[in-house]
Write a protein that binds this DNA or RNA. Structure first.
Lengths: 335, 335
DNA sequence: ACGTAGCACTCCTATATGCTGAGTGCTAAG
DNA sequence: CTTAGCACTCAGCATATAGGAGTGCTACGT
């Protein structure tokens, strides 16, 4: 029942619709793609495809639009995989050549890269800071009365510049911290609760102790590390689906709800590249969107996750090619 | 020619319009404010105020709207200065009580605070990183083959996690860096050009040297430190002036042009709190907006700058009170 | 049995038209 | 100087109408 011609028609519709954002009619399709049959025949095929749940009609006398299942079929079986332009390819590889191994930085760069094509809004979440392992806790003197606390974990560094109480000997503090650092080394950040610190650090002065705990707690609270990064909202909002004020509003609201975006991103499981199309996505506000996710694992644990978001009418071939390349490059750089 | 009653009428119009976003008619004004005169009298006063350039008419048969000069007069002479709620006051003071003296952090917190009232979009620029003075350059070992470079200046800290070439002795590097640090100490970041580093650091291995230069250069390039931070775009876009798709679009475009926002912020000169209303602002895309700026100086130089942005129809009293408090608290904390 | 031309029908979109209500400006009277 | 009254203006809304793109169905040809 799904002969070749039907598939050709479906593919033509998906591709034209992706390009134009307008429902596709039988006449225009017959004219632009020379399928060798008349519009009437295409109309019959379209009716069949609709009955099969692969096409939708916005209303009786409009053209056809791919349904979620239509897009899915297209992505799985009809689409010609895109190959990235050589320059893009070089750009991606180049990004991970440097010696920088800081997650924060790599994620920020990757997000920028992914949204730089101008087609997608990009989301990213990094590894949960609380899961990181403490490597070192250091105090770097800055100048009279000031000091930088530096907390180094296996994949990120945090710092904080603080003012010291006047009567505190910096060198003394430094040595204490170094000892503290030795003793705490290897613990995950989430284990560094107030009570653990307390038992280990009796000799540290109270003011500094509080500051230290604050600092560690800040590393734990959903801060920059835990945040959903967003980039390319302009790409997203300038899509023709957001022509009406109503829709822009809804989209902005979605973008501003970090928790929703976080779900959207984390719902995909496993490493590698995945696509979720429209309703396949469990979250109601995202049912008109598609998202291509990239999951990066390290040591068997989910490490970072990126998402290319656009209306369902996205360029799947391009998104997937881009995602695949970034996945491979980043995975290699990290593991 | 500007008698008390005219001023009362102007004030009433500004305040009603700020509250309702609808042009104010003579009848409603006569009804809601008991000015003791009829709508006809108010109409005459309004006509006079319009002739004086203090009111505008969107079209012939609409009510009146304050002109830029009308708002200005209101702000300078008519408005009752607001006093902050005790809780807000406490919150502001509380923010700067902690010992954290890192610019990055203080600015981020302040931006959050300023947009938390829900009324304004907040902009901020920090001090230019290139003007900072290098205090210390340190290498903190993380684990086998990894190391964190930490660059400490007089008001911020930057770090970078890098992978070391296998045949490099970390302790050796550390000592070299320490010496480098001693020698470069006191230079501003902008002076740390490649050539300066080169003459000072002959003994550093090439790979690490490159990394180091990269790192310093990254501190110089317009990165996070130099960026215009934006917060509360939701507050902004949910204003009734952005009801039409067209206007939302324009606003989003404005928000995305970081350079424009930067200008908007930096155009104001001098320390303290200032208001610019509509056309007073040199930038065309901002001619329908008002901005309250806070300039913080340190050691005679401009240090940080914040801006509360909203449609001209903003609550000036509230914005100014908030800005003034934040200015005082932050200025005190920094100086 | 399949493809095609033709045609009636549907329904969105854009444009024109009329109506309403809020508001103004002006005049004349208190 | 103030105010009541009134004619006038104009955006906004609703309704009506025409146009156009597209569909589905039928009948006919190969």
């Amino acid at each position: 029942m799904l002969d070749v011609r039907k598939l050709l028609v479906l593919r033509a519709i998906v591709e034209d619709y992706v390009a134009s954002a307008e429902p596709i009619g039988s006449r225009t399709l017959a004219r632009t793609h020379n399928l060798g049959v008349s519009s009437a025949t295409i109309r019959n095929e379209m009716a069949d495809l609709e009955a099969l749940g692969l096409l939708d009609k916005p209303h009786t006398s409009a053209g056809r639009v791919p349904s979620d299942r239509g897009y899915r079929l297209y992505v799985d079986r009809l689409m010609e995989p895109a190959t990235l332009a050589e320059s893009d390819f070089q750009q991606i590889r180049g990004l991970y050549l440097s010696r920088v191994r800081e997650m924060e930085y790599l994620i920020a760069q990757t997000v920028r890269l992914l949204s730089s094509t101008g087609d997608f809004m990009t989301l990213a979440v990094g590894p949960e800071p609380r899961r990181a392992t403490l490597m070192r806790l250091e105090a770097v003197p800055v100048e009279e009365g000031r000091m930088a606390l530096v907390l180094v974990t296996d994949y990120y560094v945090q710092h904080r510049l603080i003012e010291l109480p006047e009567d505190l000997d910096p060198e003394n503090l430094r040595l204490t911290l170094r000892e503290l650092s030795e003793r705490l080394r290897g613990l995950t950040i989430e284990k560094l609760t107030r009570s653990v610190l307390e038992t280990v650090a009796r000799e540290v002065r109270r003011e500094i102790y509080d500051e230290l705990v604050d600092f560690v707690e800040e590393c734990l609270t959903p801060g920059d590390g835990d945040r959903v990064r967003i980039s390319g909202t302009g790409n997203f909002l300038s899509q023709p689906e957001f022509r009406e004020a109503e829709q822009i509003r809804a989209a902005i609201q979605l973008i501003e709800q970090e928790s929703v975006l976080g779900h959207l991103l984390r719902d995909a499981s496993g490493a590698g590249v995945q696509v979720r199309i429209g309703q396949e996505n469990p979250l109601p506000p995202a049912r008109d969107l598609s998202i291509v996710t990239i999951g990066i694992e390290r040591g068997g644990e989910m490490f970072a996750r990126f998402g290319l978001v656009a209306p369902k009418r996205m360029d799947y071939a391009k998104a997937l090619a881009l995602a695949q390349q970034v996945f491979e490059a980043l995975d290699e750089a990290i593991n």
